[in-house]
């Protein structure tokens, strides 16, 4: 029997499985809610791009928290899932432009890894706007700020992440 034949309505499926408390994104985004966004930035290009955004006083929302990694290729899918588990509403990964990687090939691997991971998250029903890879060079401070503003806006429109969150981490 195919999947679609089994499927009645998503609500009914969750109800049947006693999981109805999930999926109710709107209820949980009522009241005071600021999104939590993690930005992994490679040390050589994107972190420097973020520094340049600072030098130019190009602002972006404070909910964006940068974690410095040597290379975008250092970002393990586990880190991204961990972020969602701990309540991140969006995760963005920034690295050097393809061809410019400080370590030559790191971002090429990243590109494949993240293409597959994001597609899988989408497949599992996580809104695809919650994940993003952006190439930001050390000279692209303006692009860094613009990307972060745009991403934060997108996450606000998607609301709270309830599909991958571990509710024990809720605060």
């Amino acid at each position: 029997m195919s999947v679609t034949e089994k499927m009645t309505s998503p609500e009914a499926v969750l109800e049947r499985e006693n999981l109805a408390y999930l999926g109710d994104a709107k209820g949980k985004s009522e009241g005071e809610w600021t999104p939590k966004i993690v930005a992994f930035c490679c040390n050589w290009c994107s972190y420097a791009g973020a520094d340049l955004a600072g030098n130019n006083r190009a602002s972006y929302p404070a909910e964006i928290k940068i974690i410095r990694v040597p290379c975008s290729g250092r970002v393990n899918p586990l880190f991204i899932l961990r972020a969602f588990q701990k309540g991140a509403d969006g995760v963005i990964l920034c690295g050097c432009h393809p061809g410019d990687c400080h370590y030559m090939t790191g971002n090429y691997y990243t590109r494949r890894r993240m293409a597959l991971l994001f597609s899988m998250l989408d497949y599992l029903g996580v809104e695809k706007g919650r994940t993003r890879v952006e190439w930001v060079s050390a000279s692209e401070g303006a692009k860094f700020a613009a990307t972060m503003n745009e991403f934060a806006e997108k996450i606000r429109s998607l609301g709270r992440n309830v599909r991958l969150e571990d509710i024990r981490c809720r605060n």
Partner: peptide
């Protein structure tokens, strides 16, 4: 891949519900 394609064609809500019901 037929089954995978069928899931891909669902809405995100349906995909979420389907995998939640399976993986749970």
């Amino acid at each position: 891949f037929d089954e995978v394609r069928r899931i891909q064609a669902m809405s995100p809500e349906e995909r979420f519900a389907y995998f939640r019901s399976e993986l749970s």
